[in-house]
């Protein structure tokens, strides 16, 4: 982001940016930046908090009226409105997590999980009018079958036409995860925090178990791209303690 600011200004476009990692912004010295103490993925603080989002936006754009640069780095003074970090979630599928799950066990559990959550996902679609679980190019059950196929010995799953095999796998897992988060957040109760949602997905769902089972398989793949997905694009660092 800081590099973009520098290069756009070089080409005559004034910039004001949000900074999520103050230490890195201090080093890179973009012309104007507002550091915000929000979690990664939420540069304007919190969803459905329009007044708070507007304060962040106004604070960032106000830097354009400043003449005391170059290099303005301001701090936004307030933390984001909190989600409920104590809210618990209900996993609708009693998934027993067999000690050595094979592909068919996991796939059956993932498909059952999808079926169980489908009414809640339909409700999410009614209230939000959109889903972000669309990037793999596969419908949600096809995404599960595609991902589970990598657990079969000597398998070589075919991606959709025009898509790359490894990218399709990481996007399939991402779609499965996002679809579940959309469904579970449609259920009644307080809005859970992002950490609660991540812990639920990676610790409690069949799909999380599928993704964790894929990790060692991908690391042993003969495909450099699949190894790359396994190494850094499958399990978040904050959840890697779940790996065996």
């Amino acid at each position: 982001m800081s590099a973009l600011g520098h290069f756009l200004e070089t080409a005559g476009i004034a910039t004001a940016g949000i900074s999520l990692v103050r230490e890195n912004t201090e080093l890179m010295r973009p012309p104007r930046a507002l550091w915000v103490p929000f979690e990664l993925g939420r540069p304007f603080g919190a969803p459905h908090a329009p007044a708070f989002q507007m304060r962040v936006l106004l604070s960032a754009l106000a830097l354009l009226d400043r003449t005391d640069g170059p290099v303005i780095l301001e701090d936004f003074p307030d933390d984001a409105p909190e989600s409920d970090s104590t809210a618990s979630l209900v996993c609708p599928v009693n998934f027993p997590k067999p000690p050595n799950p094979d592909e068919s066990d996991l796939l059956r559990a993932v498909l059952a999980e999808t079926a169980s959550l489908a009414p809640w996902h339909a409700l999410f679609m009614e209230t939000h009018g959109r889903s972000i679980a669309t990037v793999s190019g596969l419908d949600i059950d096809a995404a599960a079958r595609y991902a589970a196929a990598f657990l079969e010995p000597r398998s070589n799953p075919e991606p959709p036409e025009g898509r790359d095999q490894a990218s399709t796998l990481r996007f399939a897992i991402e779609d499965l995860r996002n679809w579940r988060l959309e469904a579970i957040t449609a259920q009644p109760g307080p809005k859970p925090s992002s950490k609660t949602l991540a812990d639920w997905f990676w610790g409690e769902t069949a799909t999380g178990a599928l993704a964790l089972a894929l990790h060692p398989v991908l690391l042993e793949s003969t495909s450099p791209r699949l190894r790359q997905v396994g190494k850094g694009q499958l399990v978040p660092r904050a959840q890697q303690h779940r790996l065996g």
């Binding site: 969803p47 972000i132 988060l181 957040t185 991540a198 694009q233």
Partner: peptide, 23 residues
């Protein structure tokens, strides 16, 4: 839609309200 390579940041905010990422 969002197809970022990193898995190490929250998507649930964007899922709920695009303005938390794209105001």
């Amino acid at each position: 839609a969002m197809s970022h390579a990193s898995v190490n940041f929250d998507r649930s905010g964007f899922q709920d309200d695009v303005n938390v990422v794209f105001p």
